[in-house]
Simulated assay, not measured.
Amino acid sequence: MEKQDQLLMKKQNKNLVLEIIKQQSPISRMEIAKVTGMSPTTITRIVNELHLQGFVRETELVTSGVGRKAVLLDVCGDVLYTIGVELDKSIIKIGIVNYIGEIVSCKSISRDPLEKYEETLGKVTNLMKELIGSHNVPNEKIIGVGVGLPGLIDYQRGIVTVSDQLKWKNVRLAADLQELTGFEVKIDNELKMKIVAENISGKARESKNAVLVGIGSGIGSAIILNGEIYRGESNNAGEIGHTVLDPTGNVCNCGKIGCLATYISEGAILSDSRKVKDITSIEEVFNAYRSGESWAINILERTSTYIALAISNILCLYNPEVIIISGSTIQNFPEIKEAIEKKCDLYIWEPIKEKVKIVYSDLRERGVVLGAALQAQNTLLELE
């Protein structure tokens, strides 16, 4: 038991040192010793091990100031890679991400909303092989794949319980994709993957408590509390699209009446627009708003009202430091931001309004891919 405790302690120390170098590089061995409280001898041993394994390198930089100069350390981005995949109703995106969180290659292809599960898996596998081959990434350096997709996801068993957008139910996505690619696969809801990216390199990187709201083909949220993803009992925390706004309202495809998604999602906006005009795409609705057509202004004004109400309710429930708004609706129709902000100012409770930051994601179309790859790295990387 004592030997196992010692091995565990050594592993934890090694992980801690590597994380400090990764977060604070360039950094000297002496600075690491001060931060960790470990002896310089222990730090030197750990750094040497990490160097031999390819994780750490000495930079050409040295510390400044008086006294003996110390060589600074940095991490090696090409020591390993993970692959991030985003699956959505009409698109598949795949990116290769290195150890320091840089997307070294990314590509997207279209997906037929009605295509079969097996066809989508085939597209993912072929595109993945194409990316790996075109950028000469050695397979042995790829430690795994992360997949983000809309729906209710059993991330522990790798099963898509239900995805309305993809028309999937109880599919063994992780196991099936692993069999096709040979890589270990982790799956999760797309917004939970995206908030990982926001927490590491986006608008939530300095926050312990944050909420990400995604508005597009559907609507949902992901929550970080005390630095960890809050999942709830069955990984469904944040599914705000099925909170009921009006029990006498629109019928939702979940079977309930008056769900938030039936007022905010792009499908709901299109459905209401077609009651007035022959509309074929969401872009036509946005253009009609820009042209000053009253029906489009009314529909999108109502949409911004419901978005603000959803944000207000989230803030009262979780009281985060920052709430990040993202999604295709925000990207393709930035004019809605001003309306959301005005209505947030109207509806958000004053004591919360004074403290919270309401911001918009900068990660745009790469957020889910990056987050999925980073989550795969977080869960699959095992230091020897």
Rank of each mutant, 00 (worst) to 15 (best):
M1E: 13
E2I: 14
Q4S: 15
Q4L: 13
Q4G: 10
Q12R: 10
Q12S: 05
K14M: 13
E19I: 01
I21T: 09
Q23D: 12
P26T: 06
R29G: 14
R29S: 13
I32E: 01
K34Y: 10
I43N: 02
T44H: 15
Q53K: 11
G54V: 09
V56K: 00
E60A: 08
V62Y: 12
T63I: 05
T63S: 11
T63E: 02
S64A: 14
G65P: 08
G67V: 01
R68Y: 08
L72A: 03
L73Q: 03
V79H: 03
G84H: 01
L87A: 08
L87G: 05
D88W: 05
D88L: 06
I91H: 11
K93Q: 15
I94Y: 00
I96Y: 03
G101F: 02
E102M: 03
I103W: 01
S105F: 06
K107I: 08
S110F: 10
R111Y: 07
D112T: 09
L114C: 15
K116P: 07
K123G: 09
S134E: 15
N136K: 12
V137F: 02
E140W: 06
K141E: 05
G146M: 03
L149E: 02
G151S: 03
D154N: 10
Y155P: 07
R157Y: 12
V160A: 06
K167E: 14
N170W: 06
N170S: 10
R172C: 09
A174G: 07
Q178T: 14
G182Y: 05
E184N: 12
V185L: 04
K186T: 04
D188C: 03
N189F: 00
E190W: 05
L191Q: 01
K194L: 14
I195R: 01
A197G: 05
E198T: 04
I200D: 04
G202P: 03
G202S: 04
A210M: 04
A210P: 05
L212S: 01
V213H: 07
I219D: 13
G220L: 04
I223D: 00
I224H: 01
G227A: 06
E233P: 05
S234T: 11
N236D: 12
A237D: 12
G241P: 11
H242G: 04
V244C: 12
G249W: 09
C252H: 03
C254D: 04
I264G: 06
I264F: 03
G267F: 04
A268S: 08
L270D: 00
L270H: 02
L270C: 00
R274M: 08
V276F: 05
K277P: 03
D278S: 10
S281T: 15
N287G: 08
R290E: 15
E293W: 07
S294E: 15
A296V: 11
A296Q: 06
I297L: 09
L300N: 01
R302T: 11
S304F: 01
T305K: 13
T305V: 12
Y306S: 01
A308T: 06
L309Y: 02
N313E: 09
Y318H: 15
Q331T: 13
F333P: 05
P334W: 11
I336T: 10
E338C: 13
A339Y: 09
I340D: 04
K343P: 07
L346Y: 14
I352F: 11
I352L: 15
L363V: 06
R364M: 14
V368A: 00
L370W: 02
A372P: 04
A372N: 07
L380D: 03
E384Q: 13
E384I: 08
